[in-house]
Write a protein that binds this DNA or RNA. Structure first.
Lengths: 256, 256
DNA sequence: CGACATCTTGACTACAGTCAATACTAGTGG
DNA sequence: CCACTAGTATTGACTGTAGTCAAGATGTCG
C-alpha cells in the first residue's frame, strides 16, 4: 500500500493547483461525491485549502472549530487524552474522510496530521448551510458517518477482546484492505504495507504500549507472518496467514 | 435511574395502545423528532410495532434485515462475536435510539433485547424512500448517528486505556448520565442506578470477564464509592467520587 | 560526526484471566 | 412451607499477558 505521504514541498503547491474539483483525487469518494457540475462550481467558490506538516495539529480538543472539510491527501489521527496522559486514538482519517462534525462549534477530539496533509476546507457556517440546501451532500455525509461508526465498532472488538498479537495483525489487515479499496483491487496474497504511523502512534491506536507493539511485530516476524523491509515498511508473504493471526474469520467477514 | 424495564405483560399490549404518535414517549428524541403533524400521519400509516422479551434476538448478524425502527422502551445491545466465542458489545440501545442501518440489507451485528423491548418498526424499503423525501428525518438521523459515533469513540478510550476499576465506574457514570438526560436534569450527588445488564453482559461491554466485573464492583463497595442495594441496583452516595474512580476529568468534560 | 528520534530487547512486576468452589436468588413443584 | 433446581453472583488460588523501567541499537538530520 502507498498511503499518500507526499512531502511538504509537494503538498503546499498543490493547494494552488487543485482549484478545479473535477481533477480532485478524492472527487468520487468524499462528501461531494454525488454533486453535479453546477454544485461543484458552488463548492469551488467557497472552498479553500490548508496544508499541515507531519506532526502538526489540525484541530485541538476544546478549541473553536474554524473549518471543516475533506482530507485530500495524507493521514491524520483523531485522539483522546486522559489528564494523566494516557492516550487513545479513536479514528484514523485517510484521503476522502471528513474532518469536523457539522454543527459542532467546539472540537471534541484532537486531530493531528500523521503525515503531511492537504485539507479541502469550508467555513463551518457555510458548510452547515450547504447541508440544509443540498440533500445529496447530507445523504453522502450520513453514509460516510455510518461507515465510520461501523469502523469504530469493528475497532471496539479489537480493543476489547483481542490479544496484543491479534491487535497488531488486525491493524495491518486494515491497512492492507484500505489500500486495496483505494486501488479497487482485491487484497493480494503477497503484499507490502507502508506504515504511516510510528510504533507509539500504533500503540495509541491499539490500546497497547509501544514496547508491546515492537515485541509483537518481532514475534510475527519470527513466526514468518511478516518481514520487516524497514521500520516503516512490512512485507506480508501470505495474506491469509496474517488474517489468521488477526483472529478474524478466514474470509474476513466481508471481502473488499 | 429507572431504565424502562416494563415486564412483558405490559410491553405487549402497549403495541396496540400506541397507534397515536403524538402520545409516543420518544416523540421528541427519536428519528421522527422534527416531523410535523402531517408527516407523523404518514409515519403512522406505515409503522408497526414489535415487542421482544428479555434475551430475545432482535436482529441476527449475517441475516436479512426485515425492519428498521426506533426503540420505544427497554434496553438492547449490539454485539459482535469472534468464532472462538469472545464477545464484545459495540453499542447500547436505549429508548429513542434507532435500530438498523438504512440501505443495509444484511445485518452486521447481533442486536439483542437486554430487557423486554418495544420497537416502532418500518419496512427497510419504505424507510429508505422516506429518507429521500423527508430531509428532516435524514438530518435527524445524521445527528443521531454522529452522537452514536461520539459515544463509540468515548467507549474506545474506556476499552483501550482504562483499568478494570475505571471501566466499571465509567459504565455507571454513563448509566447515570443517560438517565439524567432522560429526565432533563443534572446528575444528583446521591443517586440510585438500576443495572439493566447482567455481570456477564457488563463484562461484554467493558472487555472484561464477569469475574473481574464482580471483583471490581466489590472493590468499589469496600472503598465506599457505592453500596449494593441488590445485585442489579446500586446506590452512589457521592457522584463526584464515582467520577473520580472513572478517571475522567472532575467535571466530566461536558456536563449533561 | 554528533545529537536526537525512534525502535528493539531484557528483566521484573502487576493486573486481569482462568479454573474452581461456594453463595445467593428466584422459580417450581411436592 | 420447604426442598430442589437453575441461573446468577461472589470469592479464592494460581497463571499468564502485557505494562514498567531501563539499557542498547538503529536511523536521520543538521
Amino acid at each position: 500500500m502507498q498511503i499518500n505521504q507526499m512531502p511538504n514541498t509537494l503538498a503546499r503547491p498543490a493547494a494552488a493547483a487543485l482549484s478545479d474539483c473535477s481533477e480532485c483525487p478524492i472527487r468520487l469518494h468524499a462528501v461531494c461525491a454525488r454533486c453535479e457540475a453546477s454544485e461543484l462550481a458552488e463548492l469551488e467558490r467557497i472552498k479553500f485549502y490548508r496544508s499541515f506538516s507531519a506532526g502538526e495539529a489540525i484541530l485541538w480538543a476544546q478549541e473553536p472549530v474554524e473549518f471543516v472539510g475533506s482530507l485530500v491527501s495524507g493521514v491524520a489521527t483523531i485522539t483522546q487524552t486522559l489528564e494523566d496522559g494516557r492516550r487513545q486514538m479513536v479514528g484514523l482519517l485517510l484521503p476522502s474522510d471528513f474532518v469536523g462534525r457539522p454543527g459542532q462549534a467546539i472540537a471534541r477530539y484532537d486531530v493531528t496530521a500523521a503525515t503531511d496533509v492537504l485539507l479541502c476546507c469550508f467555513r463551518p457556517r457555510a458548510f452547515e448551510a450547504l447541508l440544509q440546501r443540498k440533500p445529496e451532500i447530507a445523504h453522502r455525509l450520513l453514509e460516510m458517518t455510518l461507515d465510520e461508526l461501523d469502523a469504530a465498532r469493528e475497532w471496539m472488538l479489537v480493543l476489547g477482546r483481542k490479544t496484543a498479537r491479534e491487535k497488531i495483525a488486525s491493524l495491518f489487515v486494515i491497512f492492507a484492505r484500505r489500500e486495496a479499496k483505494r486501488q479497487r483491487a482485491k487484497v493480494a496474497q503477497e503484499l507490502v504495507i507502508d506504515l504511516p504511523l510510528s510504533r507509539e502512534t500504533m500503540a495509541d491506536y491499539l490500546g497497547l504500549t509501544l514496547e508491546t507493539v515492537s515485541r509483537q511485530i518481532s514475534a510475527l516476524r519470527k513466526d514468518g507472518v511478516l518481514t520487516l523491509l524497514s521500520a516503516r515498511k512490512v512485507l506480508i508473504p501470505r495474506f491469509d496467514r496474517l488474517l489468521e493471526a488477526a483472529g478474524d474469520d478466514s474470509d474476513g467477514g466481508f471481502v473488499l
